[in-house]
Simulated scan of single mutants.
Amino acid sequence: MSPRKSDSRERMISSAAELLGEQGAGATSIDRVLAHSGAPRGSVYHHFPEGRAQLIDEAVAFAGDVMARRIAAARAGDPVAAIDAFFTLWRERMIGSGFRSGCPVVAAAVAADEEGPRWADSAAAVFGRWQEDLSALLMTGGLPEARGRRLAAFILGAVEGAVVLCRAERSTAPLDAAAAEIHDLLVHALPDRPDPAADAGSDTDAGENSPS
Rank of each mutant, 00 (worst) to 15 (best):
I95W: 00
I95E: 05
G96A: 08
R100K: 14
C103W: 02
P104I: 01
A107I: 06
A107K: 04
A107H: 13
A108E: 08
A109R: 15
D113W: 13
E114G: 13
E115M: 06
E115V: 05
P117G: 11
P117M: 12
R118Y: 04
D121N: 07
D121S: 15
S122P: 01
A123N: 05
A124W: 02
A125F: 00
A125Q: 01
R129E: 06
R129S: 06
Q131L: 08
E132K: 11
E132R: 15
D133Y: 01
D133C: 00
A136R: 13
L137M: 12
M139Y: 05
G142H: 09
L143C: 12
E145L: 11
R147N: 14
R147K: 10
G148D: 07
G148W: 02
R149C: 03
L151Q: 03
A152I: 01
A152D: 04
F154P: 00
G157K: 07
G161L: 10
G161W: 10
V163S: 01
V163A: 06
V164K: 06
L165R: 14
C166R: 06
A168M: 13
S171R: 04
A173F: 09
P174V: 08
P174D: 10
A177P: 00
A179Q: 14
A179Y: 06
A179D: 01
A179N: 02
L185D: 02
L185W: 05
A189Y: 04
A189V: 06
L190V: 02
L190K: 09
R193T: 02
D195M: 09
D195L: 06
D195K: 01
D195Q: 09
P196M: 12
A197H: 09
A198I: 11
